[in-house]
């Protein structure tokens, strides 16, 4: 298959992203024409005037939600791309190998033990929750990596099985915690587990933004290293790369990104699998292009998915995670079939 020019793809995606953002601001239960949207945005930027109803809807409801979708999409897609490089396998996705489940278990533990009556809508509460999710996600990544990778490569079967095991453990832990928690905590846990982007507000959007920016700066710096990593761990070492340090750094960063996005938006599956795969199909596996491509593609995908989630059954709303799963699961099966034919 012929490849696309990477620059062309990146520019196209970079142009599509603002369009997708504007579209998501314009659509919803109250549909806006482009001129209303334009007027409202102009008012907002002029003097922060919220008296206009459209401006208020955009500023208080849609803008934080769009930012949240954009950031979570970018984080999940780049984390997926980096993990696939780290595991040297295109099937390594945070939600499939148990990192997301580990993160959700970590977050549940925090809700039950660490924070009696803490308000998880506040920035502080969210940060604590995020750290719990980060710890859980980190433990899961380390465990899967230890189990599945050997010097001769990564065993896909072990990797996916470890994901199932961690998922089951996290599920059991969640049920156990739900069983023993009081009414208030139970509400907190189930609300949070449903996640989705519908609970978006400014504290959440700003927090995830503060996570996204450093990750988008740090991930691309390891592009060349990740390229060499695809040859194998020993080969990367022969090429002068401090393999242990790189592994530790990237596992920490991906667990941090996935943990925070799970803490804030709940489980949004398959973005980390589908987006890097499509980008790789179009422009090849070079991480110098793959990582920015995945960031843009993930942001667009989640914006569009969330848009559909809000409008398909309007005025009711679907959790965004259901939509990405509906999209991602068949894709995953197709990948499995393809891999099976190859071996």
């Amino acid at each position: 298959m012929r490849r696309l020019n990477p620059g062309l793809l990146l520019w196209t995606l970079a142009l599509l992203l603002p369009l997708a953002t504007l579209l998501s601001l314009a659509t919803g239960t109250v549909t806006m024409t482009w001129s209303t949207l334009w007027q409202a945005l102009a008012d907002l930027f002029d003097d922060g005037d919220l008296s206009n109803q459209a401006a208020m809807i955009i500023f208080n409801i849609r803008l934080p939600r769009s930012l949240l979708a954009l950031c979570v999409g970018a984080i999940l897609a780049t984390s997926g791309a980096v993990m696939q490089g780290l595991f040297r396998n295109p099937l390594a996705d945070p939600s499939l190998i148990g990192v997301s489940s580990g993160a959700s278990a970590g977050a549940s533990l925090v809700i039950v033990f660490a924070a009696n009556g803490m308000a998880f809508g506040s920035t502080l509460g969210l940060t604590v929750l995020g750290l719990g999710a980060f710890a859980g996600g980190f433990a899961a990544t380390v465990l899967v990596y230890r189990l599945a990778t050997t010097s001769s490569g990564t065993s896909v079967a072990t990797m996916l099985l470890a994901g199932i095991a961690i998922g089951a453990l996290a599920g059991a832990l969640n049920s156990l915690l739900s069983y023993f928690s009081d009414n208030d905590m139970l509400r907190q846990i189930s609300l949070w587990q449903m996640g989705s982007l519908s609970t978006a507000n400014w504290p959440k959007a700003l927090l995830i933004g503060a996570v996204t920016v450093p990750l988008m700066i740090l991930f691309p710096r390891d592009s060349r290293v990740l390229n060499a990593f695809l040859l194998g761990e020993s080969e990367a070492r022969y090429l002068g790369i401090d393999v242990q340090r790189v592994k530790r750094r990237l596992i920490l960063l991906t667990a941090f990104g996935v943990g925070m996005s799970v803490a804030i938006a709940g489980l949004v599956a398959f973005v980390g699998l589908v987006v890097p795969h499509l980008v790789r199909l179009l422009i090849g596996p070079d991480h110098r292009w793959l990582i920015p491509g995945a960031a843009l593609g993930g942001a667009i995908l989640l914006l569009v998915a969330d848009n559909l989630a809000r409008t398909l059954t309007s005025p009711a709303e679907l959790p965004t995670g259901i939509l990405t799963a509906l999209l991602g699961a068949p894709f995953f099966v197709a990948l499995l079939v393809q891999q099976r034919q190859r071996f």
């Binding site: 040297r88 295109p90 695809l230 040859l231 194998g232 020993s234 790789r280 090849g284 070079d286």
Partner: peptide, 14 residues
């Protein structure tokens, strides 16, 4: 020092 191992487990379409 350059080393060529016996098996090359590269599975990505470079």
């Amino acid at each position: 020092l350059a080393v060529l191992p016996q098996h090359a487990p590269l599975e990505f379409p470079f």
